[in-house]
Design a protein around this nucleic acid. Structure first.
Lengths: 133, 133
DNA sequence: TTTACTTTTGCAGCATTGTTGCATTTGTTG
DNA sequence: CAACAAATGCAACAATGCTGCAAAAGTAAA
């Protein structure tokens, strides 16, 4: 599905900034940060515009935000695979790669009495294939 | 174990700021933010001092940092329960409570070929006992 | 295609948080 | 208590989050 189709499906105006971000995330395949986006598409857009565009795309569900650390935030396209309430991501300690993983196989410990759960965020830290070579 | 003992065991100088933070975390039982610390112990210490004290205590392993979101960071005392490689925390969407949970029962999905894992961070979001009443 | 309207963008500006260097103060050890 | 090592407070700067407002861009209808 093209960026245009995705935006239209979510009733969002098709702007060049939104298209660039969606295209970049599609091409990348992995999660990327605002900084990395800028390195790829250039200094085309204002800081505020990028900030608001990410916000809009997250709120519409087109992309999702992965907070590895308070100083490291990345974004990835949402797919059927990542749509569930259980988000699983891999972070490479060596190269900083962030990837979405299917939530299948994840078993959450039981909560104390009276607690209820809406969703979970799991980050698995380690070394990726490339860095293990 | 008293704050004094904890600091001594980790070869750290016993300063009033470090003691206050450890005491506050001990009393609280749950994870708290820098902001909450200030509300409890007052505006006694400089922002930088709190920042560096948290850093020192994290690096020594006395406390650990829980990043709920890039704008919400809390700290909790490390205990034998939370010492493992698998950190599990609960976040209440309603009141902001953050609690450490034992990692027992957590089963991580299998990683793709070539990937290795060092540690995991799981945040379970939902509603706590109080907010469910 | 042009017009009128709605939404987004860029800019300015402010708040919060992360981080460092350096002089002063505090804690530790003999 | 003296001497030394370490922590603290202050100043300062960077990065990020966030908002208001005028200008620009996108959309839909004539």
């Amino acid at each position: 599905m093209t960026a245009k189709d995705i935006l239209h499906k979510h009733n969002l105006i098709r702007t060049s900034c939104r298209q660039s971000i969606i295209d970049t995330l599609t091409d990348a395949g992995v999660a990327i940060s605002e900084e990395e986006i800028k390195q790829i598409i250039g200094d085309t857009y204002d800081r505020t515009t990028l900030y608001r565009t990410f916000k809009t795309l997250v709120e519409s569900g087109i992309i999702h935000k992965i907070v590895v650390d308070n100083q490291l935030v990345k974004y990835a396209l949402s797919t059927s695979k990542t749509d569930s309430e259980n988000h699983v991501h891999f972070y490479c300690n060596n190269c900083g790669l962030v990837e979405c993983l299917p939530g299948a196989g994840l078993i959450i410990p039981e909560l104390p009495d009276g607690y209820t759960q809406t969703n979970t965020e799991l980050i698995i830290k380690g070394n990726c294939k490339n860095c293990n070579r």
